[in-house]
Every structure is written in C-alpha cells, then in structure tokens.
Amino acid sequence: MEQRQTLAPSNAFIAASWLALFIGVIAYNIGLWNATMQLNEKGYYFTVLILGLFSAISVQKAVRDQLEGVPVTNLYYGIAWFTTVLSIVLLTVGLWNAEMAKSEKGFYAMSFVLSLFAAIAVQKNTRDLKASKPEGLF
C-alpha cells in the first residue's frame, strides 16, 4: 500500500468550515424556532437536518476510507449514500408541500445545504489534521 503525505488544512479553512457549519445549523434552527408551523412539523425538519448531517459525514468517511484502502462494506457505503439522498428528498418533499412563503422555503433549503457541505468539510479537516501529524502526537 502506498503512503501518501497528507498536508494539514490551513487554519483559515478550518475556521471557515466550522463557521459555515455553525451558521448553517444555527440559522436553520432559529428559523424553526420562529416559524409558525406546528411542533410536529418543526420536529420533522429538525430530524431531517440531523439525519442529513450524520449521513453526509458518513459518506465522506466511507469515501475517504475507500481511497485510503480501509475496508468499507458495500452495505455501509450504500446506506450512507441512501440516507444522504433520502434526507435531501425528505426536505424537498416537506418544503414542496409546506404552506410557507417561497423565501422561507429557500431559506431552509440553503441553510440545509450549507450545513451539509460544512459538515463534510469539518470531517475532512479533522481527518486531514490527524493524518498530517506524525505517529504518537494524537
């Protein structure tokens, strides 16, 4: 197996990734808190966000593991992709059928996508930082 040298991400990229994650998740949740929808609807949208975040991180980890030669079962890989796509579909269907302004729907969609992207970037940064350190420092 070939050893690749992994460069540590810059502090600016790490900070931007964490900031994007916090902005996306906090904005999404502030939107839910202030929304006039029923509590069960708020729970639905919150659960879709959590499912999406966990699934996106799982996809990033599985893809990275495969690239590095770490065994990943096809079942896990498939479930990670399925739940990521499912979270996006569930959000899309929920927003499509929601009785809210188009601008509010767009707000939820954009903060959801920002959160997913940022979660993947944070996971990548965490892994790159660990891989860039010599053995024994972590």
Rank of each mutant, 00 (worst) to 15 (best):
A101V: 09
F138L: 15
L19W: 05
N74H: 15
L19Y: 06
A98M: 10
E68N: 15
Y108P: 00
S115R: 01
E99Y: 10
V122N: 00
G78P: 02
S132Y: 06
N34Y: 01
Q5G: 09
T84N: 08
A119P: 00
Q3H: 12
G43K: 06
L90G: 07
S58G: 13
G106K: 09
N40T: 14
N97H: 08
A12S: 09
Q5M: 14
K124A: 13
V85T: 08
A118P: 05
L129P: 06
Y76H: 10
T47N: 13
I14D: 09
K130M: 02
Q38E: 13
T36V: 14
S58V: 06
A98L: 13
L129H: 03
G24V: 05
A8Q: 12
A16N: 02
P9N: 04
Y45T: 01
V113T: 13
P9S: 03
K61T: 12
N97R: 15
I79W: 03
V85S: 08
F13N: 10
G106F: 04
A20D: 12
V25E: 07
S115G: 01
T47G: 08
Y45L: 08
F54V: 15
A56L: 13
I14C: 10
T84G: 14
Q3D: 10
E99N: 11
N125I: 07
R4M: 12
W96F: 03
S111V: 03
G78W: 00
R64E: 13
V93I: 15
L21Q: 10
S17M: 01
Y108H: 06
N29W: 00
S55I: 07
L75Q: 15
E104K: 02
N97K: 13
L32N: 03
M110I: 11
T84C: 04
Q5C: 07
P134T: 10
V25S: 14
M1F: 11
A15V: 09
L51S: 07
P71A: 12
Y44G: 01
Q5K: 13
F138I: 14
S132L: 07
A62Q: 07
R64C: 11
A62R: 11
Y28W: 08
D128K: 05
Q123E: 14
V113W: 06
A62Y: 03
S55R: 07
I88Y: 14
A20N: 10
A27V: 15
T6M: 01
